[in-house]
Amino acid sequence: INASIYDEIQQEMKRAKVSQALFAKVAATKSQGWLCELLRWKEDPSPENRTLWENLSMIRRFLSLPQPERDAIY
């Protein structure tokens, strides 16, 4: 996982035409506020920051699903 995940998140929300609230809920079981802060600060993903790493790993797993599967989840 690297910093490009933040751009991938924004691209996916645009592509699927979903809100931050919906993306946060389905991709990371988090709130819109959490995702907003995540995208604002764009912390460097590092395994040392375990909570951030685990949350980004969950999002990465969601983004790695085939597009039709992600669309069905939304």
Rank of each mutant, 00 (worst) to 15 (best):
A3L: 15
A3W: 13
A3G: 14
A3V: 09
A3R: 15
A3Y: 15
S4D: 14
S4H: 12
S4Q: 08
I5F: 07
I5D: 06
I5E: 00
Y6K: 03
Y6I: 05
Y6L: 01
D7E: 14
D7L: 10
D7C: 15
D7F: 09
E8V: 04
E8G: 01
E8Q: 15
I9W: 01
I9E: 02
I9Q: 02
I9F: 00
Q10C: 08
Q10K: 09
Q10P: 03
Q11C: 08
Q11G: 13
Q11L: 14
Q11F: 12
Q11T: 12
E12W: 01
E12D: 02
M13G: 02
M13K: 04
M13L: 15
M13T: 03
M13A: 00
K14L: 12
K14N: 08
K14R: 15
K14Q: 14
K14A: 15
K14E: 13
K14W: 11
K14M: 09
R15W: 04
R15I: 01
R15F: 02
A16P: 00
K17N: 10
K17C: 08
K17Y: 08
K17L: 05
V18T: 03
V18A: 07
V18S: 05
S19A: 03
S19D: 15
Q20D: 05
Q20Y: 09
A21D: 05
A21W: 09
A21Q: 12
A21M: 10
L22R: 10
L22T: 03
A24Y: 00
A24W: 02
A24C: 00
A24V: 03
A24F: 00
K25V: 03
K25A: 15
K25F: 08
K25Y: 04
V26S: 09
V26P: 00
V26Q: 01
A27Y: 02
A27Q: 00
A27C: 04
A27H: 02
A27L: 02
A27S: 11
A28Q: 02
A28F: 09
A28C: 14
T29F: 06
T29Q: 12
K30G: 08
S31E: 13
S31F: 05
Q32H: 05
Q32G: 14
G33F: 15
G33W: 10
G33S: 14
G33E: 11
W34Q: 03
L35I: 10
C36S: 13
C36V: 13
C36Y: 09
E37W: 11
L38R: 04
L39W: 03
L39Q: 09
R40W: 08
R40T: 11
R40F: 13
R40D: 08
W41M: 07
W41D: 15
W41K: 15
K42P: 03
K42Y: 04
K42S: 07
K42L: 01
K42F: 02
K42H: 08
K42C: 06
D44W: 10
D44S: 15
P45A: 05
S46Y: 12
S46F: 11
P47L: 09
P47C: 08
P47D: 11
P47G: 06
P47K: 02
E48T: 13
E48C: 13
E48P: 08
E48D: 08
E48G: 13
E48Q: 12
E48W: 10
N49R: 08
N49T: 01
R50Q: 14
R50M: 09
R50Y: 09
R50A: 14
R50C: 11
R50P: 12
T51I: 13
T51A: 10
L52E: 12
L52Y: 05
L52R: 04
L52M: 07
W53P: 05
W53T: 07
W53H: 07
E54L: 09
E54Y: 06
E54T: 07
E54H: 11
E54P: 03
N55A: 08
N55G: 12
N55V: 06
S57H: 05
S57D: 08
S57G: 14
S57N: 06
I59T: 01
I59N: 03
R60S: 12
R60F: 01
R61W: 06
R61S: 07
F62D: 02
F62I: 00
F62M: 01
L63M: 04
L63G: 00
L63R: 00
S64R: 10
S64K: 08
S64P: 03
S64D: 08
L65V: 07
L65M: 10
L65G: 01
L65A: 05
L65C: 03
L65P: 03
L65T: 09
P66S: 06
Q67Y: 04
Q67F: 07
P68S: 13
P68H: 15
P68F: 15
E69V: 07
E69R: 11
E69D: 07
R70Y: 04
R70I: 00
R70P: 03
R70Q: 04
D71A: 02
D71V: 04
D71Q: 04
D71L: 00
A72Q: 14
A72G: 08
A72T: 09
A72P: 04
A72M: 12
I73N: 08
I73E: 13
I73C: 13
I73Y: 15
Y74V: 04
